[in-house]
């Protein structure tokens, strides 16, 4: 019974940590807009934490450059399992307009495994919330696999 409750709770309490990997801040504003009264993702138990050690979801924005890819990797590594990654915005998906720049890696999935891609430049908050819901499902599945 307790195990079931824990399984159920995983989906009901996704704490997110938001990492700006060289974004223009457009996606970041939209991501944080999800927490505002209009969208209020806390309805689903989402809490914006400041620390990967507390987080279940990693929300990454930005094109990723050669300097901050190490930080991205380390933050991902510091999250305890089960965890999921949501890449937000055109830059996060592929590098966007910065793709060809000399210092840009171009895409979060080149550094860490990404579970959900939310496209748009910037994506709407509704889309981001959709992404979060999708991510919850994936890491529920991951937890089941691990068990």
């Amino acid at each position: 019974m307790i195990k079931d409750f824990i399984e159920k709770s995983r989906a009901k309490s996704p704490w997110m940590v938001h990492f700006d990997c060289g974004s223009c801040n457009g996606c970041d504003i939209e991501t944080l807009a999800c927490l505002t009264p209009i969208y209020d993702v806390e309805r689903f138990g989402v809490v914006n934490v400041g620390n990967p050690k507390h987080a279940d979801l990693l929300m990454v924005t930005g094109a990723v450059n050669h300097r901050n890819k190490h930080a991205l990797k380390k933050i991902y590594d510091q999250m305890p399992d089960p965890k999921a990654v949501v890449a937000i915005g055109a830059c996060g998906l592929s590098g966007g307009v910065f793709r060809e720049a000399y210092n840009v890696v171009g895409g979060i999935d080149k550094v860490i495994p990404v579970d959900v891609y939310v496209y748009g430049c910037p994506p709407k908050p509704e889309a981001i919330i959709d992404g979060v819901v999708k991510a919850i499902e994936t890491f529920k599945a991951k937890a089941r696999e691990a068990a």
């Binding site: 307790i2 824990i6 399984e7 709770s9 995983r10 009901k12 704490w15 806390e42 399992d81």
Partner: peptide, 20 residues
Amino acid sequence: RFGPPIMQPFYDVAKLFGKQ
């Protein structure tokens, strides 16, 4: 805002116990 369910703290703690 609307806010989370009243049970939310229990979900949170249960989830934490289920983490690595």
